[in-house]
């Protein structure tokens, strides 16, 4: 029997009486499980009590596979749909493998949401610049944290905002996430292109690196901003390609990944030079110090 109340994670400076301990997970139940690819699973989670957490696009949760451990996983759901919390998880380690193996009805520990998320103020109408184009560049499972942003951007587009371009790089056609949904995005006005590293003749899409899609994508680089998520090397190359195209470095946002064991700035594992990624990120503009930091080896 579950005895505790689910309390919203506090964000204030002083913990108040009865506040939940920041390291104590809230129990959620897997209510749906979708196999996305041979290594990626999407879990839909419902809080046992107290309602689901609310989040912003690009934020992440710490998910506990009980008895195995806890990892940071970005939220891939629609922030506004109020439904179960959606996590798209790639099986790359012991905990993610355990999470991917969970069945409907299993219990998952959730802490979060953490991190800053994508900065969408560029589209939401900062001083008349509301018509900026947005270029979303995703590599592999990097599409997962971008999905909430795309959904929010499409809503904004329907209200007359700028173009939404989604460029997706994947290993092979069968590894492309949310395939059916991409057509929905297209019908809602997004320009969606997918390129893969390798394909057989049945693949009618592009073959090549995701950066090769940038040159011919329909956006105005001088009045656009970009959201990029994928392997770090892919993000470095993408950022440079966008710079070459004429986009300002501060308008290129990257979502970074490092080992996170707490999500709240205590454990020190996710440092990248001056940044604690969980606390200061995971989303950073490419301008400022990030370009230099990413170019440093073993930082």
């Amino acid at each position: 029997m579950v005895t505790e109340k689910s309390v919203e994670p506090f964000r204030g400076p002083i913990p108040e009486s009865g506040s939940r301990h920041p390291l104590l997970p809230t129990p959620y139940r897997v209510v749906k499980r979708v196999v996305e690819t041979d290594t990626v699973v999407t879990l839909f989670l419902e809080a046992l009590e107290g309602g689901n957490l609310t989040f912003r696009p690009g934020q992440f949760n710490m998910l506990t596979a009980f008895g195995v451990g806890e990892i940071a996983v970005s939220i891939s759901g629609d922030p506004l749909d109020g439904g179960p919390i959606r996590h798209t998880i790639a099986s790359v380690g012991a905990v993610s493998h355990a999470l991917c193996s969970l069945r409907v009805g299993s219990l998952v520990g959730v802490r979060g949401p953490f991190g800053n998320g994508w900065d969408l103020t560029g589209v939401t109408g900062m001083a008349g610049s509301a018509t900026q184009d947005v270029v979303v560049v995703a590599g592999g499972v990097g599409l997962a944290p971008l999905r909430p942003a795309v959904l929010e951007l499409l809503k904004m587009k329907e209200e007359g905002r700028g173009r939404v371009v989604v460029l997706i790089g994947s290993r092979s056609p069968d590894q492309v996430l949310f395939k059916e949904e991409l057509d929905v995005w297209r019908t809602r006005g997004a320009h969606v292109e997918v390129t893969v590293d390798r394909a057989d003749a049945s693949w009618r899409g592009s073959v090549g690196v995701v950066t090769s899609l940038i040159s011919s994508a329909p956006f105005d680089p001088h009045d656009a901003f970009s959201l990029v998520c994928g392997p770090e090397v892919m993000m470095r190359f993408t950022a440079r390609a966008l710079l070459d195209k004429g986009m300002h470095e501060d308008k290129i946002q990257l979502s970074l990944e490092r080992n996170m064991q707490c999500g709240i700035g205590w454990c020190g594992h996710c440092q990248l030079g001056p940044y604690l990624l969980c606390r200061d990120g995971p989303v950073f503009p490419y301008g400022g110090r990030l370009a230099e930091l990413l170019a440093k080896r073993e930082l």
Partner: peptide, 15 residues
């Protein structure tokens, strides 16, 4: 039985 496992009470923090 995961469903019957009582989760811990939240910790009170006096502050």
């Amino acid at each position: 039985d995961d469903f019957s496992v009582p989760f811990a009470q939240p910790v009170a923090i006096t502050g």
